[in-house]
Design a protein around this nucleic acid. Sequence first.
DNA 1: CCTCTGTAGATTGTCGACAATCGTCCATAT
DNA 2: ATATGGACGATTGTCGACAATCTACAGAGG
Lengths: 235, 235
Amino acid sequence: MAAASTATAREGLREVERPIKSVADLAHEQLRREIVAGELVPGEPLRQAHIAERLGLSRAPVREALQRLEIEGLAVLRPRRGYVVANLDVVEIEDIFEMRIWLEGRASALAAGRRTIADLRALEDLIARMDECARGDTVDIVTWAALNREFHMKLFQVSGRRQLCRMALSLRDSVERYVRVDYAMSEMLRHAQHEHKGIFAALKAGDAERIETLSRAHCEHTRDRLIASLAAHQD
Amino acid sequence: MAAASTATAREGLREVERPIKSVADLAHEQLRREIVAGELVPGEPLRQAHIAERLGLSRAPVREALQRLEIEGLAVLRPRRGYVVANLDVVEIEDIFEMRIWLEGRASALAAGRRTIADLRALEDLIARMDECARGDTVDIVTWAALNREFHMKLFQVSGRRQLCRMALSLRDSVERYVRVDYAMSEMLRHAQHEHKGIFAALKAGDAERIETLSRAHCEHTRDRLIASLAAHQD
DNA sequence: CCTCTGTAGATTGTCGACAATCGTCCATAT
DNA sequence: ATATGGACGATTGTCGACAATCTACAGAGG
């Protein structure tokens, strides 16, 4: 039994996202952005040679990126037939949201007992920057969504639970593209901002019970709005 | 918006494990078995060339296998320094078990409302085969563990929730190797068998509330026994 | 007119090789 | 004796090429 403690996953929760980025990491992030942003629509085939050429690299890192997307639930592999952008049906979306409601509520509650001044400052800054995006009459939905993801990721990280953080983030990403389409079509965004401020206040106060309730409600609202939107646009 | 419904993940829950296996799939399964079985100890470096030679294939599929192991939480990558077998500390193990307790309880409850005769027969058969493993004075822990995994996987699948099933199985696998070490050193195995029969009975009766309670208790017992074992053998 | 079969094209899965980077060992200076 | 610096070996990350397999289309047969 070799000395193993050096490999223990203890380098801090910041490294849920890998520190040093390889070309494969960049390809993965790029494709994830494109899928999440809806530029690559569900069912669209993801051809390795095509993507490699488009991103200016070889097929090996593209394969790795696709592999990860599959495990994250963003792509589906049909052996010898290639990857396609995953398509979640309503049942699966509800499935994911049920888990999110519990996991995010739990993470928030834990965070309330561990937040530091620095954490609060970082979250406050993210809220302010999101406000910026929605200030004028034109809403910068792309930037807002990126900041929103960062806000919730930060909140998860404050919980101090590495594994819980991983799960919650992964589930978020797998439905984010559907949520974003919905946000763009509704006033939900400003409502979300309001809820973020409530969550932040509860975190600042260290009120675990309240932040858990608020986080769950935040998730539930997103889910309800999304399901309603999907039902309306069913085609 | 192209016709996407063909790609929808609807081919049935059996395909959580991929149907047609590539060399990379086999490498992945082999390495996972070795890690879960404890043959590869936490902290041990996983050198690509070495593994490739040992399994008689090239580095490409080995890389893919390692990639998956990382996302499953079984391996950790330090960029430019290679993969090592992941080492979970007690906090992370408790973290994972807290999620398992909730997810597995929920999946069981849902399964109680959807089980078919065929499902029950399959589960009953698995229980019988596990009994076989523990009949004599020598316990076939490896076979038992494989059947145990199948039993719980089957139970998750009956829930009909594809995503929930994925998460629960992934979390199981990431702590399985620690649990197995514990099983080998205790009488916990027979106790687990007894609990399986209780869970099965509740499923057969369609009693959602009872099976949820039993499943959670099953998880909690495993956790408590494991934590105690880790505390005793701390080195 | 429909169905089945065989060929052609395209795409994946796998391989071996090369360059970049990291850890290690040794020489040297303080 | 300890610390600093450079070269060597080992390992990863990336690339282009090849073989296996699948899809699509065309042609023959019923």
